[in-house]
Simulated assay, not measured.
Amino acid sequence: MDGEILTVIMDRLEESVPELQWIGIDEGQLNSPERPAVAFPCCLADMAYVQCDDYKEALQRVRGQITLRVAFKRLGSTNTAAPRAVRSRSMGDYSTLQAIHKALQWWDGNGMFGKLRRLSVRPERRSDLRVFVMVYETMFAD
Rank of each mutant, 00 (worst) to 15 (best):
G3M: 10
E4T: 11
L6A: 06
V8M: 09
I9E: 06
I9V: 14
I9H: 03
M10W: 00
R12P: 03
R12L: 02
L13Q: 02
L13I: 03
E14N: 08
E15H: 11
V17M: 03
V17K: 04
E19H: 06
L20W: 02
Q21A: 14
I23Y: 04
G24D: 13
G24S: 12
I25L: 12
D26W: 01
E27L: 13
G28H: 04
L30S: 04
N31T: 11
N31A: 13
S32F: 01
S32V: 05
P33G: 04
E34C: 01
E34F: 06
R35S: 11
P36N: 02
P36W: 04
A37I: 06
A37V: 09
V38H: 03
V38P: 06
A39M: 09
F40V: 05
P41C: 05
P41K: 05
C42R: 05
C43L: 11
C43W: 01
A48N: 11
Y49Q: 10
Y49K: 08
V50C: 02
C52Q: 13
D53H: 10
Y55H: 14
K56T: 13
L59M: 14
Q60K: 14
Q60R: 14
R61P: 00
V62Y: 04
V62S: 05
V62G: 02
Q65R: 06
I66P: 00
I66R: 00
T67G: 08
R69N: 15
V70Q: 03
A71M: 06
A71T: 05
F72H: 09
F72L: 06
R74L: 15
S77G: 09
T78N: 03
N79D: 15
N79A: 13
T80G: 14
P83L: 14
P83I: 10
R84G: 04
A85D: 15
V86G: 01
V86K: 07
V86W: 00
S90I: 12
M91F: 13
G92M: 12
T96W: 07
T96C: 15
T96E: 07
T96R: 04
L97A: 09
Q98M: 13
A99I: 05
I100D: 01
I100T: 03
H101C: 02
K102I: 09
K102C: 08
A103N: 07
Q105C: 06
Q105H: 15
W106A: 12
W106K: 10
W107A: 08
D108I: 07
D108T: 11
G109R: 08
N110W: 05
N110R: 13
G111E: 07
M112E: 10
M112L: 15
F113R: 06
F113L: 07
F113N: 08
G114M: 06
G114C: 07
K115Y: 02
K115H: 07
R117M: 08
R118F: 00
R118W: 00
L119V: 07
S120L: 01
S120P: 04
V121I: 13
P123E: 08
P123L: 05
E124Q: 12
R126P: 00
S127D: 15
S127K: 12
S127G: 12
S127T: 14
L129C: 06
L129K: 06
R130S: 13
V131F: 02
F132G: 01
F132H: 11
F132E: 01
Y136L: 01
Y136S: 00
T138I: 06
T138A: 08
